[in-house]
């Protein structure tokens, strides 16, 4: 079964070693704009006065992403710095997607991104977005097929606009329907 999590649920989760020590908490989720797969997390300290740690945790060094914690083997799972998270962010096709507009390829604005939906599994991927529509409604929008992401906007195929879910439990169905639809479309062409 595929499980979905909001990116905001993953952020702030403690990063804990198998020895039971906490190394920090998740700050950013960094994903590949072309495939959607999560590349790494960046970390922040825990506690009221803590700031960012400027250290990255590559996905391949994550032992498990659970509902209550991100588990790693030991402290060596963390990178010495956050270079892995920084590169590409300033290149074309990169940047924070929270707050950017989501637009169909034919130019219809669907809303602004308020959160991302992550499909958990062996390699988690950004499978969709939570958007706030111009009518101030929050809906979950699955993405599939040719999605282009930049720090400016998320461009999705037109068919995406027709598949949405009110909550995470309905997201899987919406994602599946979109996938089927995009397959049919590509057959027809």
């Amino acid at each position: 079964m595929t499980a979905y999590m909001r990116a905001s649920e993953i952020a702030k989760k403690p990063v804990v070693t198998l020895a039971g020590d906490d190394l920090g908490q998740v700050k950013d989720l960094v994903f590949d704009a072309s495939t959607g797969s999560i590349r790494c997390f960046t970390l922040a300290g825990r506690g009221l006065l803590a700031g960012p740690l400027h250290r990255a945790l590559l996905w391949r060094n994550v032992h498990a992403l659970g509902p209550h914690a991100v588990m790693v083997r030991d402290e060596s799972a963390l990178e010495k710095d956050d270079r892995a998270a920084r590169f590409g962010a300033t290149e074309p096709g990169g940047g924070n997607v929270l707050g950017v507009a989501i637009t169909t390829r034919s130019g219809e604005r669907l809303g602004t991104v308020t959160d991302a939906v992550v499909e958990t599994g062996r390699t988690p991927v950004v499978a969709g977005y939570e958007i706030e529509t111009d009518e101030h409604r929050r809906v979950l929008l699955p993405v599939a097929g040719p999605v282009t992401v930049s720090g400016e906007r998320v461009l999705v195929p037109d068919a995406t606009a027709q598949y949405r879910a009110g909550d995470l439990s309905g997201f899987g169905t919406a994602a599946e329907s979109l996938r089927v639809r995009l397959q049919q479309d590509s057959h027809e062409e």
């Binding site: 070693t17 198998l18 020895a19 039971g20 020590d21 906490d22 498990a64």
Partner: peptide
């Protein structure tokens, strides 16, 4: 039991 640390007790799943 896998570990007892400052934050939690870790056990096998």
């Amino acid at each position: 039991l896998l570990g007892v640390g400052s934050y939690a007790v870790v056990v096998t799943a």
